[in-house]
Design a protein around this nucleic acid. Structure first.
Lengths: 332, 332
DNA sequence: CTGAAAGCGCTTACAG
DNA sequence: CTGAAAGCGCTTACAG
């Protein structure tokens, strides 16, 4: 049985109130007594019990992060950044998965906030239905949306400007002189996928290039979709000059297909991906890509959530981060 | 302010003791009263407060997972499995990083158990010094070592039989008829690295093949070490017939170097990796590898930890899981 | 089968 | 600057 605040009080010859003041670093404690308490705490190797503290103050010092899967590089990067930011703030990270909107509303994970286990949540799982957010609001649960935002209501969020990312990526290909430019998109399920498509289309039309239906293929952020889309174009004899892949996994597949069919990259085919996956710089040629500021997303997400927690009236911010193009060997 | 147990008691016209009994599913409650309580709980949308419960029973329903980094595929796989197992048990996962032994003993994360925030911890960060484990023992903190074990003391652990993995991988290459077989190892920091080397050496010597110094290279589980070791052998004109790479990242580097120098794989060079990274099956040729049972590690780790938590006298188990060879295109 | 009372280990007005 | 008392929301003997 660990020592408690009464043990410290007794040892220091003071009351638990004073001990509590020292623990919480309140200024109104005589220096001499503070020393006594500190000494007692050290000698008895004391740490205050979190449950008791939570019960008394109504805060746990823990934050929940909800994500759809552990299998995505970008999501893991965000998680790493969140953990780092929380650690710096002396808080802890509870991780839970919820694959989709139904899961968000019904899975076991809701106990996280319903049982008041966390002070707030960071939501990386795509929220399709604002009803869920309204419930959080009703229950007064602080939250911040990550990598998504909500159209029909004010909801704090940190997003990446995916339109801009798509526009930038496509512009790189256009500036190279490519005329037949294709895009293999991500699933519509993610808002980010649609935004990248929009950026792609906008860049083309801003430059007077028509969007050809056969060059706008629906993918799913996998190696396979990149590989087969490319193989298909090759088989049909309509391989474009340049491909904007909606993520690096897709780009890996495109590159593999090109290698297999001896299409010189970037001479005959330029490729640009999205995410800056570690492998993009390792493969030969290195894959040009659009870097998402995952660290910033995690860091600002934690910051925003803290603000909301500490001053419930915090204005509902929306932050859109700018992605940046990284040029490697698959573009000219 | 959420409703509490007194609100439910009042609504149901019973005492909080009875409500508590219903919450905890105790049998000794009259059916009729149980119904009343359940109805009240439902109507008031009640969930018991976790902090209050923790304080009363001395358990939090949360488990800590400590890992050195989020940047490793295998570790993330284990984490995913731990999260799944905990979810099934109705418990929660707190994730914290500690890069090494010093960090384990000193970083902020110790507050996790010192402040009694978790019921036990799963340790994926390499513990070099048993002093740390002795401290956990002294404090009576339930823990299970993951992917490592301790020589000089009884400590519960789930490991992969890396000796066996190394032996199996090497045997595949030997059976192919390879004579010049190399190994690019992982860092000595990990016990698993050394075990794989031991397995490699044992398989060779069991088959009467000498271990050549230039074919036992120290790597670091990266693409780069695989690439450069291979390039080096090529440059020196001593490329082996077959390479056992200590992990798939290393194997990716080996394959890339082979492709770059037009070494036909597996005709002139066989490659086998370790981990069954998703990309092993995507690249061409697919990379043969040794699959680590990451899911089992997480699952059994949680199971073992639960046992220790629930019956403090739980015998200190050690489980070694068997890895399995997966043959793809980089071996004959 | 039920409930009054005490206890888990903190913090927070409040009084001095 | 200090501390007695009450309270946070549960559970657990104990008595009936």
């Amino acid at each position: 049985m660990p020592v408690n605040i009464y043990d410290i009080a007794k040892k220091a010859g003071l009351s638990v109130v004073t001990v509590s003041r020292v623990i919480n670093n309140y200024p109104n404690v005589k220096k001499e007594n503070r020393m006594k308490v500190l000494a007692a705490m050290k000698e008895l190797d004391y740490k205050p019990n979190a449950a008791a503290r939570s019960l008394a103050i109504g805060k746990t010092g823990m934050i929940g992060l909800i994500l759809p899967t552990f299998g995505d590089f970008f999501l893991i990067q965000v998680m790493a950044s969140v953990e780092k930011a929380l650690k710096e703030a002396g808080m802890f990270l509870v991780v839970s998965t919820a694959v989709d909107n139904t899961d968000l509303a019904e899975s076991n994970y809701i106990r996280l906030y319903r049982e008041e286990r966390v002070d707030g949540i960071l939501i990386l799982t795509p929220v399709k239905d604002s009803g869920y957010l309204l419930e959080l609001k009703k229950r007064d649960i602080p939250y911040v949306l990550l990598d998504q935002y909500q159209f029909n209501m004010q909801a704090p969020s940190i997003t990446v400007d995916n339109f801009d990312g798509g526009y930038q990526a496509t512009s790189v290909l256009i500036k190279e002189g490519a005329q037949n430019i294709a895009h293999i998109s991500g699933p519509d399920f993610f808002e980010s996928s649609k935004e990248r498509v929009r950026g792609f289309v906008a860049a083309l039309s801003d430059n007077g290039i028509a969007v050809r239906e056969e060059y706008l293929i629906k993918g799913d952020f996998t190696f396979g979709c990149g590989y087969y889309a490319t193989k298909n174009w090759i088989d049909m004899g309509i391989l474009p000059d340049a491909i904007f892949a909606a993520d690096d996994n897709t780009a890996f597949g495109v590159l593999e297909a090109a290698k297999e069919f001896n299409i010189p990259v970037p001479q005959k085919l330029s490729i640009i991906g999205f995410d800056d996956h570690p492998f993009t710089s390792l493969l030969y040629p290195g894959i040009s890509t659009v870097r998402q500021p995952a660290e910033d997303m995690g860091k600002y997400g934690v910051e925003m959530l803290m603000e909301i927690i500490n001053q419930k009236n915090g204005r509902m911010n929306k932050i859109a981060l700018r992605p940046s193009v990284i040029l490697r060997g698959t573009t000219k």
